[in-house]
Every structure is written in structure tokens, then in C-alpha cells.
């Protein structure tokens, strides 16, 4: 399905599901931006328009789940992060503090530096100024890539688990359990044969293996169907309830009432959240 046709269908479906024009416009613009940047087919990236619109509508109408439970110790502290690519400043003086038992959302338009900021927090991307403190182990879910085409899901679990000191059998069991929470039963298929959404499930499961203290998730729900999208947020809340610090890069602003901390990078490439 061509991008324009899919986006037009998404606009109609969002209206049909009662999503307001402002939010609908934002969602469509973000989806268009993602498709343009990634070059992916819309069906592969987001699924059918009606399913994706239903997921958006569902999350708009969902319950506010932010908790009043006191936060734990600091797990992630990013202070005055600045990043330039050539003459272009992508991030300027951005700060974020996330405690154990908190979910932070990093939001902003395409090109506002969300993924760069997450990469800087993970230590995968250098910063021109500022510092990051990570307290504990880190799990990272990239927006794309991060898996090996010719390995099966179980082999991914064993490989990542070994790095975190988890024995092979335990890692495979743990991976299968986490996959089940996302309505996925990993089989013998190699990663290259998985659909876009299932591959992202694998990515997400890998991020959570070994129960890292800090989870950095870069739009991990690309290609998820409606049910899995909701499962994903339930998984995030389970992590939060287990005392993990979770940072999610997202463009779905309707989820913001369900998170504890919001870092908005839209305004002038800078932001402070704690």
C-alpha cells in the first residue's frame, strides 16, 4: 500500500474512532515522518490503518495510570546534554532525572533528537557537553536493528543473557516468558523471517532480559498491532512496579498522562525534566 493511501486511510480511521483533529493530525504527521525516514512499507511499520487507529483511540480513552507511590533512588541522571552534528545543534542543555519505579517519556517532533538523546544516555553516542550517570545495569531497545538476521529468537536470548551472566537455559526460559507477555511464542524462525512487529517484540524482550535496572526504549512499538501495543504499555508498567527506571521515546502524546516524567524536546531542542 502506498504511503499516501495508507495515511489517508489512517486519517479516516482516526476520525471514525473519535480521535480529535489535533491529535489525529499529529499522529498522521508522525507516522508520515517515520515512513519517510525509515523507507518502510506502512503495513509493515504500523499494520492496517484501522488497527493502528483503534490502538491510538484505545490509548486516548484508557485510564490514567500514573501512580502516587514515592519514587526510589535515582537510576538515570542526564545533565545539560548538548549534541551537535556539524553546525546543527540537535540538543542543547537537555536534562533528565529518572528514579527507580518511574516511567519517563521523551517526546518531540521528528529530528528533535529523541533517539540521539537516548543513545547518549546509553553511552552509544557521544555528547559534546554534559554528563550522564547510570545507576545499575542497562537494557536498550533500538528503534531498528539490534538483532542478528540468521539467529533464532532463543539464540538471541542465550547470547544477550550470557552477557548479563544468565545461564543459557534460564535466559531462554526468561525470554519465552517475556515473549508470551507480548502475545508471542518464539519458534525456530530466524530473525530475518520475522515480521517487523515480531522483530520489535524480540528487540523488546532482549532489552528486558536479565532484569536491568534502567530500560531505554526507542519507539519500540513500531509495527505492533493494537493488542500488542497495549501489552507493551502493560509491560512498561510492570517494569515500573518492579522498581525499574524506564525511559520511552514516543510520539504518541496520548500516553503522557500515564507516565511519571515527560521530557519534551520539541521546543528549541532543549528541555529539563525531573
Amino acid at each position: 500500500m502506498r504511503h499516501e493511501i495508507w495515511l489517508a486511510a489512517l486519517t479516516d480511521e482516526l476520525r471514525r474512532h473519535g480521535v480529535g483533529p489535533d491529535l489525529a493530525g499529529h499522529v498522521v504527521a508522525e507516522a508520515a515522518g517515520h515512513l519517510r525516514d525509515s523507507g518502510e512499507a506502512p503495513l509493515r511499520a504500523f499494520g492496517p490503518p484501522d488497527t493502528y487507529a483503534a490502538a491510538v483511540a484505545d490509548s486516548v480513552g484508557g485510564p490514567a495510570l500514573a501512580r502516587s507511590v514515592p519514587a526510589g533512588p535515582v537510576r538515570l541522571r542526564a545533565v545539560d546534554i548538548t549534541k551537535r552534528y556539524g553546525r546543527r545543534t540537535v540538543l542543547s542543555g537537555v536534562s533528565l532525572t529518572v528514579h527507580a519505579g518511574q516511567v519517563a517519556a521523551v517526546v518531540g517532533a521528528n529530528g528533535s533528537g529523541k533517539s540521539t538523546f537516548l543513545g547518549i544516555c546509553a553511552g552509544l553516542v557521544g555528547a559534546d557537553a554534559g554528563r550522564v550517570e547510570l545507576h545499575g545495569t542497562v537494557g536498550y531497545c533500538p528503534q531498528a536493528g539490534g538483532t542478528a538476521d540468521f539467529l533464532q529468537a532463543g539464540e538471541h536470548f542465550a547470547l544477550i543473557g550470557a552477557g548479563r551472566g544468565v545461564p543459557r537455559e534460564a535466559a531462554v526460559r526468561d525470554g519465552a516468558r517475556r515473549a508470551a507477555a507480548l502475545d508471542w511464542a518464539p519458534g525456530d524462525a530466524q530473525a530475518r523471517h520475522l515480521s517487523g512487529g515480531t522483530r520489535q517484540k524480540l528487540n523488546l524482550v532482549l532489552a528486558g532480559l536479565g532484569d536491568p535496572d534502567v530500560l531505554l526504549l526507542d519507539e519500540p512499538y513500531q509495527g505492533f498491532d493494537r493488542g500488542t501495543y497495549l501489552d507493551f504499555w502493560h509491560e512498561v508498567w510492570r517494569w515500573r512496579d518492579a522498581g525499574r527506571a524506564v525511559v520511552v521515546v514516543t510520539h504518541l502524546l496520548n500516553q503522557l498522562d500515564r507516565v511519571d516524567v515527560v521530557l519534551d524536546l520539541s521546543a528549541g531542542s532543549s528541555g529539563v525534566a525531573a
Binding site: I81, I120, C121, G123, L124, V125, G126, A127, G130, R131, V132, E133, L134, H135, G136, T137, V138, D213
Partner: peptide, 12 residues
């Protein structure tokens, strides 16, 4: 390499 701006406390 671990970038110099990152300090990990009690992790890997």
C-alpha cells in the same frame, strides 16, 4: 568505547 560523558555506578 564507553563515551566519557557516561558514568556507570554499580553496573557493567
Amino acid at each position: 568505547r564507553r563515551r566519557p560523558h557516561v558514568r556507570i555506578v554499580g553496573g557493567l
